[in-house]
Amino acid sequence: MHEYTIPAGAYARTEAGEDLGIIPAEIEVHVGDRMRIVNEDETGQTIGPYYVGPRSTVEHVFREAGVIEGLCTAHPERSIRIVVSERPT
């Protein structure tokens, strides 16, 4: 399980240039891994392929290998990369 929590007030602090280190800019996962993002903030956030509304949680299981790149409002650089690889046997 890859779990990340966005604390209350995070968006405003990120906007102010602070890197809260909530979620890595690059995440490596395996097929079958589960991602869980909890947003405790009052502002909805786009985290790559997810939109996590205020005080909401999104869960996702990676079904196929690949690279997902997208915008991330939780990073000052505004981007995130998720590398999904086959689980080693």
Partner: peptide, 20 residues
């Protein structure tokens, strides 16, 4: 299935419940 209107920076609005 959810449709939500977000701002140009892709973050939500203060009144998100009204635009969801």
């Amino acid at each position: 299935i959810t449709a939500v209107l977000v701002a140009e920076d892709h973050a939500g609005w203060g009144n998100e419940v009204d635009v969801t």
